[in-house]
């Protein structure tokens, strides 16, 4: 049911949000108990995730149906665009926290632990860890995690960079295709983008395997391991989300949902993809290269 108000579509009786809240509640309660070592926690967590997936399906199906039926005018479209842009901005800030941690550890706390800096910073070194010499990458003065080799930039990470850059390119080709109204071409290039995305994730998984199996590089490898896995891990998770979004857009393209003028879903997913791309470049430079 809907009310037309100057053409701005206002939905009534939303049933999905409460499902989403219950889903998140079950997920968080489950994960919390799981972390605390309770057996039911794990099952509860997965049940919560299932509810979330169900909710997302239902919610997006409703929105897609409304969009296809032409309920949304240009103003509604603008609301969606703003929503997506600000959401991406919030994600930028989320990554900012972890990049901030990386810079802080490398620029400040690391050198201080190594005895640099005046006014008391050097005391920690003298009293607790005299003889500790700070060089990045480090697992700290206590060598927690038992020694590791850092991940070089040349092999897989470089390949991954090329993969993601290429996927940015294919995504843009797909965008031009839909702008010309060529949905078939869009689907083809999107398919390539999604494939590149999943290859990236596979490479990343292999890289993690290498790290654990051969380099001794683990989450517990001090601040280097912490920042490495936190940044690449959250990034990889975002790649998965972005790829799923693009995949859904691709399926919708196969069903002929888009026109040259009306393809916001594509654009939202594409913006997200480029955001993930840019984050990777930051990672490549600051986590791998330098």
């Amino acid at each position: 049911m809907s009310t037309a108000t100057d053409g701005y579509y206002i939905p009534h009786e939303a049933k999905w949000p409460i499902v989403g809240s219950i889903g998140l509640f079950v997920t968080f309660m489950g994960l919390g108990s799981w972390l605390n070592g309770s057996g039911v926690g794990e099952i509860t967590f997965y049940a919560g995730l299932a509810i979330m997936v169900f909710m997302l399906f239902g919610w997006f199906a409703t929105v897609i149906k409304e969009s296809q039926s032409g309920a949304y005018n240009g103003q509604v479209d603008t609301s969606f665009r703003m929503c997506m842009s600000w959401f991406i901005f919030s994600e930028v800030m989320f990554f900012g926290a972890f990049f901030g941690a990386l810079f802080y550890a490398r620029q400040f706390s690391g050198p201080w632990l190594g005895g640099e800096g005046a006014g008391g910073a050097d005391v920690t070194n003298a009293v607790l860890w005299s003889g500790y010499n700070y060089v990045w990458p480090t697992d700290g003065p206590a060598n927690v995690g038992g020694g590791f080799q850092p991940m070089g930039w040349f092999g897989l990470p470089l390949i991954n960079t090329l993969l993601l850059l290429t996927s940015g390119f294919t995504c843009t080709v797909a965008h031009h295709a839909i702008k010309d109204g060529d949905q078939k071409k869009m689907v083809r290039w999107l398919g390539a983008t999604v494939a590149l995305g999943f290859i990236f994730v596979a490479c990343q998984a292999f890289e993690y395997y290498e790290a654990y199996a051969h380099l001794g590089l683990k989450m517990s490898s001090g601040i280097y391991g912490s920042t490495f896995f936190m940044l690449t891990g959250f990034h990889g998770f975002h790649v998965c989300m972005g790829a799923v979004m693009l995949f859904v857009v691709m399926l919708r393209g196969m069903k002929g949902h888009f026109t040259a003028e009306n393809h916001f879903a594509f654009e939202a997913a594409a913006w997200y993809w480029h955001f993930v791309d840019v984050v990777w470049l930051g990672l490549f430079v600051f986590v791998y290269l330098f």
Partner: peptide, 10 residues
């Protein structure tokens, strides 16, 4: 992880 532990370089 060792973000906030000096022993690990955090």
């Amino acid at each position: 992880t060792s973000f906030f532990s000096a022993a690990g370089g955090g």
